[in-house]
Design a protein around this nucleic acid. Sequence first.
DNA 1: AAGTATAATAGGAATAAATCCTAATAGTGA
DNA 2: TCACTATTAGGATTTATTCCTATTATACTT
Lengths: 142, 142
Amino acid sequence: MSLSRRGRNTKQRKLIMEAVQSRCDHPSADDIFISVRKQDKKISKGTVYRNLNILAETGSICHVRVPSADRYDSRTDMHYHMFCASCGVVVDAPIPYNEKYDKLAEEISGFRIDRHRTVFEGLCSECRKKYEEQDTNKQINK
Amino acid sequence: MSLSRRGRNTKQRKLIMEAVQSRCDHPSADDIFISVRKQDKKISKGTVYRNLNILAETGSICHVRVPSADRYDSRTDMHYHMFCASCGVVVDAPIPYNEKYDKLAEEISGFRIDRHRTVFEGLCSECRKKYEEQDTNKQINK
DNA sequence: AAGTATAATAGGAATAAATCCTAATAGTGA
DNA sequence: TCACTATTAGGATTTATTCCTATTATACTT
């Protein structure tokens, strides 16, 4: 398992890994902290942050950078994300990772490219509805 | 000019806009603060942050999310970025914005998509050299 | 199985980006 | 010129994340 790829395999690290794997909602570090605290009353925030970073570095989990707080998910393949600017929900995007971009960018730029990260921004279907209702009401009240 | 698209056109806002436009190094909010302070000894950090946000919202400048501190640039067209994980430099990516992705993601997901943001990660050519030298030395010392 | 080196932890302090608050100021439309 | 109110300066505050240190526990060695 990819857990043991780096350093010691502590109870805490296993717990954090399982917590990420058990959810599909792209939790933040604090969400994970709250989650693992239920099983280990002593685990500290520093431990959660440190291990999430380690797990992300070794490729055991995925790190998503979005406004307000970073998120994590347990998919290990490269993939894109969608972010709702209204409610903050994060979901996986239905667009395949484009490896050609990395090669192309590397060739043209002189950078060594490891990967790219793509986040789609907009409104999730629920928030979209709310906004559309508001617009309709405005229309009616005029 | 797109400056006046929202609210009042204050000296401070103009100064901040000009500061962003005058550089090509994707400065952070703090970089801009230091820069505009040279011309306006009284301007405050809050003003810089607020105006950068306003200018980014109205599309007058571009907001780039990268580790440690967000960056800004004066290009108004959608484009991608490259980030050096070693020295933190940010440059524009030589890959054209792919509008098809937005339509596709919208159709498949039910989200309303406004845009996507892509950041390539790796090493800039200078940092790349340093790493390659290190590796060579390791090889030699073995 | 015991010994041991040291990675990792708990707990909390420290850092830093970004936002928020309020009285004072200055654009802007009339 | 007046009056309205968006914006500002300055500083306090918030919040995500990292850092610090004595202590603990993992995993290697024998």
